[in-house]
Amino acid sequence: MDRAIGHPGHWEHFSHMADIGIRGVGASIDEAFAQAAIALTATITEPTTVRVEESVQLDFSSPDRETLLYDWLNALIYEMAVRRILFSHFQVHINDCRLQAQAWGERVDRARHQPAVEVKGATYTELRVAEEDGTWIAQCVIDV
């Protein structure tokens, strides 16, 4: 439930006392951001249960990469809240500090998704976007 490792990218959760840390890992920053978004969904439900039925497009810029991750996750949280949907597939393209993305998912089905928590927001806690030896990570703690 809390870790899905596979080629080329993966996501994981890390512990925070009251809430949950999410981390996306990938060969590129695009992939790390997409994986972080799956980790976000996984705090609510099992991402593989979320079908691809509708999509949302996002396009915005932020002052730096870490704020870009904060804004990316909060944009998804906002779309999930107002559309009552969950996302499971993401295509992300980042150029400097501009993000263009499409997110696919479906409306919440409470019986099938068994949503565990509602995410209030992504936070600056443990917020980090970095590349080491060709591997990118994108992480922060989310408030649930």
């Binding site: 949280i77 209030k120 927001g121 992504a122």
Partner: peptide, 16 residues
Amino acid sequence: RGLGHQIGTEFLKDMA
């Protein structure tokens, strides 16, 4: 609810 969460998210960034 969502209103408070969104205000918190927006002002955290604004206040930074």
